[in-house]
Structures are given as C-alpha cells and as structure tokens.
C-alpha cells in the first residue's frame, strides 16, 4: 500500500483554510475587503511511504 497519510493532509488543509478565513474575519472587522489571500506556502507536496503487507493465507 502507498501510505499517503491522509490524516496529516487533512490537518494541513484545515490549518491553511482556517488561517485564510481568520484573516477574512479580521479584514471584515477592520472594514477592509474580504477577498481570500493565497500565498505560495499554501501549496505543498507530500511524499508517500510504501508499506508492504503480506497475506497470511486465510
């Protein structure tokens, strides 16, 4: 199996999204535009681990 560690991917995605939303909330409070601000560090690539499993035959 190729372990893509989707739980960590979920954590990272939610951290990025909540960061952007929090900035929108703050911008709104200050009466500024609420357009989402995307940054280069918001784009990330993860590696996958190869996990070897063996059937016991049952």
């Amino acid at each position: 199996m190729l372990n893509e560690d989707s739980e960590t991917i979920g954590v990272l995605a939610a951290q990025i999204l909540t960061g952007i939303i929090d900035e929108q909330v703050e911008a709104e409070r200050l009466g500024k535009a609420t357009t989402p601000v995307y940054r280069p560090e918001h784009r990330q690539e993860m590696t996958a681990d190869l996990i070897i499993r063996k059937s016991c035959g049952c």
Binding site: L2, I20, Y38, H42, R43, E45, M46, A48, L50
Partner: peptide, 20 residues
C-alpha cells in the same frame, strides 16, 4: 494555479512501487 493545494508526489510514489 495560485489556489492552495496539498498534493502527493505520485510520480515519486510510483517509482518506489516500480523499484519494489
């Protein structure tokens, strides 16, 4: 292209599979 994304290096992963 500027929209955030978390992706997996599937080319690297495929190479690991191939080597195995």
């Amino acid at each position: 292209d500027r929209v955030p994304s978390i992706t997996t290096d599937n080319i690297g992963a495929s190479m690991k599979v191939g080597a195995h």
